[in-house]
Amino acid sequence: MNFDELWSLVTRMIKHPKFPAIAGAGAALCVGIGVYASPYLTFNSMQSAVEQGDSAAVAKNVDFAALRSSIKAEARVKIANQTSENNPMAALSTMMAGPFIDSMVDSIVTPEGLTALIRQSSANFVPERSKSNVVSIGSNRVMMRYESLNSFVVTLDENDVNLPSELKSSSLSLLFSRSGLGWKLTGVRI
């Protein structure tokens, strides 16, 4: 087939009365697939950036103010739940832990700190893709799912051998929120 025959075929297709509808449906399908896959792509790009130690690339995918607030709130709730209501010293220690938590989270939750923390906890992980929303990373399982149209959750398996013992009784979830056309890490659930 030479160029003239090909051009003739293309012009006949474009002039077909159903071409705009077919082209529009094809474009809508491509956009829909892109929108659905975008949080998965964000997580994968973040994972690659961590593996390469690229703090700037990690920072593009994180809303640090929202993440810090989320971690502080989760830590306060965890401490409050572990203290005894009848012990007056427990209330004092909970009250004193607030400023300590704030300063610790503010110093750790930076692009470099977050990259180092994730990199240290995920050393030697090799992702094994499956057809479901569960990804095996080494001996760990990561489940990814939409929580709502604007919220995406990545949950680490509660039996993850690399999690600290205090987290093994619960799961650790990374919360991603839609930010324009992309997604950003905005919180955690412990």
Rank of each mutant, 00 (worst) to 15 (best):
S148K: 13
S179I: 01
V153M: 11
L167T: 07
Y146E: 14
K131S: 12
D157L: 06
R145C: 01
R141Y: 09
V154E: 00
R129D: 04
P127T: 08
S170K: 15
D160K: 06
Y146P: 02
D157V: 03
K131Y: 05
S130I: 00
E128V: 10
T155K: 14
L163Y: 08
S132W: 01
M143L: 08
I137D: 00
K131H: 11
M143I: 01
G138V: 04
L167Q: 11
R129C: 01
S173T: 07
N159F: 02
S169C: 03
S130D: 14
V134Q: 02
N150F: 08
Y146V: 00
P164K: 14
V161Q: 15
P164L: 06
L175G: 06
E158Y: 10
E128G: 07
S132G: 10
N159I: 00
G180A: 06
K131V: 03
S165P: 04
R129Q: 13
E158V: 00
V161P: 10
N140P: 00
S165H: 13
L167R: 11
F152Y: 15
S148V: 02
V154K: 03
S169K: 13
M144E: 13
S170M: 07
V134P: 03
N159H: 11
T155R: 14
V142M: 01
P127N: 10
R178N: 05
S165A: 10
S148W: 05
D160V: 02
N133E: 05
E128W: 04
D157A: 11
Y146C: 03
S169W: 07
G138H: 08
L172M: 12
K131C: 00
S130C: 02
M143Y: 07
V135F: 06
E166D: 10
L172D: 11
L163W: 09
S171T: 14
D160R: 08
V154S: 01
S139W: 04
L174S: 08
R141M: 05
V161C: 07
N159C: 00
S177G: 11
M144D: 09
S179T: 04
Y146T: 05
V135C: 10
V161T: 14
P164Y: 10
M144Y: 04
E128Q: 15
S151I: 04
V154N: 03
R145M: 03
G138L: 04
S139T: 10
V142D: 01
V134M: 06
M144C: 09
I137P: 00
R178Q: 12
V135I: 15
N133Q: 09
G138S: 09
V134T: 14
F176I: 09
G138C: 06
E158I: 00
L149N: 09
N133P: 01
D160L: 00
V142G: 01
V134N: 03
V142I: 08
P164M: 08
L149I: 06
R145L: 01
L149P: 00
R129I: 01
I137L: 04
K168D: 08
S139D: 15
N150Q: 10
S173F: 06
N159L: 04
M143V: 03
D160T: 08
N140D: 10
S148D: 12
V135A: 08
V134G: 01
